[in-house]
Design a binder for these strands. Structure first.
Lengths: 263, 263
DNA sequence: ATGTCTTTGTGAACGCGTGCACAAAGATAG
DNA sequence: CTATCTTTGTGCACGCGTTCACAAAGACAT
């Protein structure tokens, strides 16, 4: 998901596969629920079902962390919660700064799941001077001018970008310059960062478009199954015919191409 | 990312790899930017740089759609925008329903990038009777009781779940029963759905935990590089020592395990 | 028309992730 | 102590995705 991911192919000391790391939070969530119900142990089969994964995959994932299970019994819930929490670095507190306090930024600041597992909203930053000092989720918004100092003073190493796309790269650069080495990007932009900085992106628009692709394919298959004439995918949407620009003597800038994108 | 993904191994008619589909929106965004600047053609190298991917990968991705490039020149921007839009199903309008109008749901309803590319917020649904009728982003919130009718009347096939985790599965079931076949889940829960329904999830908490993992690893490597004694990962965070529950005669429910999770 | 130069499209090799299937380990009963 | 039963941990094979490297294709100059 991360765009500017640094893969660190050789330096990887404790070789935990990326795919496994991405599933650990899932296991942790399921285990926490079991813990709250005071369930002492759980088998790989049960836990896998709760996390929505294959049990063999779960066992292999845990094998990367060490042998924490007991054959014939299963895994000790509390112990596993502790081990995964430690592996994910959740035994320490992570101060997080949110930059861009619009609709989404404010929603994230108010999001409960934030404060819970080891993460603490340490600062809210916005470029709008009118926002400065306004409390959001009980925290006063600070101005972008002080970004460097805010990051340094609070020891922030994880930044969340919820700015408009145009400002994202600039904010990213400033965060990195101030010492942030992990960025969660909600802005629909490709961020470029130096080596050693991790970027993960959350993109509503992309997710919807992926769903739309499958949705369209499902509709097409359904139509085909019902005997409706589906000549080719080119005729799929019944849209204006695509006028291919001739390779040589390409059409001028008159732009009579079909205007596909609504905005 | 989807948990209940139906992989449809054989039925896949036009074999476009899932990884490629996930990148098409990225290409489309870069191409749209070029289009707005009236750039007529672009090479795979340039476009790949703009999208943050390898150029060979981009060419292979496009090869699944067909041969839309011209050797020695590159790709026609407008034509490619059209082809990708059609492939993703963005040449038609997708009415979307958002269920759970809290902080996040309201933020998404107000999100501009929603309405742009072919997606239209057709309905906002919430279980709180006090919310019913209240306009959010210019749309009146409707009550959960009418969910079935709302979905049917508006021909909604894509649902967005932004409810608290406890309500997510129930809402999901009702959406599916009403005819929704694609779900974007923001609730931190594993959704189980029947075959033929696609689920994609967006999980802030998981993303942060993945970042924390890498952040911790970076800090550990840095410390090791500076000559600080790092005995073992077990001593990494300097936390309370993990007391392994003895397999047999496991400790009683007195719960003197380290309380790792803050909440 | 011919040659050069650019860029695409793809064959092939490689590596990662997944899932099966089973041996080893330990619990539990007799 | 022995036998049986449950469940883990993992060797192995397979398939997908990525990347390299290059031949083919076309633009463009002469």
């Amino acid at each position: 998901m991360a765009t500017g991911r640094t893969h660190r192919p050789a330096t990887r000391s404790r070789g935990i596969p990326e795919a496994t790391v991405a599933r650990l939070p899932l296991y942790l969530r399921a285990l926490t629920a079991l813990s709250e119900r005071s369930v002492p142990t759980v088998s790989s089969e049960e836990l896998a079902a709760a996390a929505g994964v294959n049990s063999a995959k779960l066992r292999k994932d845990f094998s990367y962390l060490g042998s924490y299970g007991t054959r014939g019994v299963g895994y000790d819930v509390e112990y596993l919660v502790y081990q995964i929490s430690r592996e994910l670095g959740l035994t320490q507190d992570w101060p997080v700064a949110i930059v861009g306090i619009g609709n989404l930024g404010a929603a994230l600041a108010n999001y409960g799941g934030f404060a819970s597992r080891g993460f603490r909203v340490a600062a809210l930053i916005d470029a709008d001077p009118a926002m400065t000092g306004t409390p959001v989720a009980g925290i006063a918004v600070q101005h972008t001018d002080d970004l460097d100092r805010i990051i340094s003073d609070n020891g922030v190493s994880i930044g969340v970008i919820t700015t408009p796309p145009g400002a994202a790269q600039q904010v990213c650069d400033r965060l990195v310059a101030a010492g942030v080495t992990s960025i969660l990007n909600f802005a629909p932009t490709v961020l470029s960062v130096p080596d050693g900085v991790d970027v993960r992106k959350v993109d509503l628009s992309i997710e919807l478009q992926i769903l739309a692709f499958h949705e369209q394919r499902k509709a097409g298959e359904e139509a085909a199954a019902e005997g409706v004439a589906v000549v080719d995918a080119d005729a799929g949407a019944g849209q204006a015919p695509p006028v291919r620009a001739t390779p040589t003597g390409r059409k001028g800038p008159d732009g009579d191409m079909p205007a596909v994108m609504p905005a």
